[in-house]
Amino acid sequence: MSLMKEFTKGFWELLPPFRLVLGLCPTLAVTTSAENGLGMGLATAFVLACSNMLISALRKIIPSKVRIAAFIVVVATFVVVVELTMQAYFYALYVKLGIFIPLIVVNCIPLGRAEAFASSNGVLASGADGLGIGLGFAISLFALGTIREIFGAGAFFGAHVMWSSYEPMGFLLKAPGAFVCLGLMLAAINTISARQAKRKLEAARLAAAQA
């Protein structure tokens, strides 16, 4: 039961780019298409799940004084594994994502989860946490990439989807478009959670009044 909770918190409560506001560099840079966003997100999710589990398994052995160095080595190992695998089997995507695959190492999410969660929780819980947060990241990047690709290029996964006379809003594929899109999504998510909190508060007040 609690394992499920560790897994699902990554989809809303701790949604990385919007709630933790971590990993913004790849979020802004590679989400020019749905495919790039999804590829980057899944690569990060894999690294996160594996590194979380391994770090959790080693948490009793790693002395706390060198833990950051040890975490980084573990994360970097998985990142290089992902990079080599991607180069071998998804070469086109590898070329497009370029430097941002090796940069997963310095992305704050894997190190952040290792420090905040995996170093003090069990292997299974850490795996669920890493996978959940990673998939949340992948979904966020996929959503952002989808919006930018549909309006900025009139396409979805490279296939034309808008009507034929639609003139793509090239602004969205450029850097300022990434910031604007991210900001608008952040605002929308904050609005929804503010409404949720308000509803919860009112329900509690109602229950108190009835009691």
């Binding site: 003139e167 809003m169 604007v180």
Partner: peptide, 11 residues
């Protein structure tokens, strides 16, 4: 104006 200019410079 900037969003329009970056999106559709030819127009």
């Amino acid at each position: 104006w900037v969003a329009l200019s970056l999106s559709w410079p030819e127009h």
